[in-house]
Design a protein around this nucleic acid. Structure first.
Lengths: 108, 108
DNA sequence: CAGTATCCAACGCGATACTG
DNA sequence: CAGTATCGCGTTGGATACTG
């Protein structure tokens, strides 16, 4: 195992973005603030995991949870400034995927 | 589970890039073609996994394996055009990480 | 050097049921 | 709606030993 050129900040960034579902959740929130059920229904992720990931992302200060004390209460998740700053990353990822990813007809 | 707005190409992209180590391996290869032991010593990844990941990335046509029949034989891994096209993504990731990631003194 | 094979513990995570 | 708790199994992946 080596430690020479590996930048800890970049490493941390990959840890966050490589965690399963995180990229998709962030990408979804780039569309705008959303409620739990909205994110849940837009991604093939279980409620338990979505809850867990949102908490992780809150701890990383990428997502914030807003409670609107209406009746019934409404809770929205939105990207923080740190989260919004990922926009460029996702734009490039989207661009790359459109240009290079082939989707074959599923036969599995 | 929903299936409404999720783009399969983007989804596939996240599958590739979110797989543990893949981002770091690609980022390392963006520095130039490298031998197995070089990648191995630049990342805290076991040989078994590195081997597995490189094969995955070959299948995705992101990495190619070049054999130079010298004595002793030399084997290099390099990014394909598809892999090199990820440069922008990684530039943005690097930029974001430098701007937003804090590394706290470890006390865990 | 450039890997492969095996072993096995730890973790991830989906399903389900339940709470406020 | 917006979650949490528990269960259980399949996958991951580190360590180690071995091969050409």
């Amino acid at each position: 195992m080596g430690e020479n050129t590996l930048c800890p900040k970049f490493f941390k960034a990959t840890e966050i973005l490589s965690k399963r579902w995180n990229a998709l959740i962030i990408n979804q929130l780039l569309l705008g603030p959303q409620r739990f059920c909205s994110i849940s229904s837009s991604l093939p992720i279980s409620g338990r995991l979505l809850s867990e990931r949102l908490k992780d992302l809150e701890k990383e200060d990428i997502v914030s949870r807003e409670v609107y004390p209406e009746v019934p209460v409404r809770i929205e998740y939105r990207l923080t400034a740190k989260g919004l700053a990922l926009q460029k990353v996702f734009e490039e990822m989207t661009h790359w995927s459109q240009e290079w990813i082939q989707i074959e007809a599923k036969k599995d």
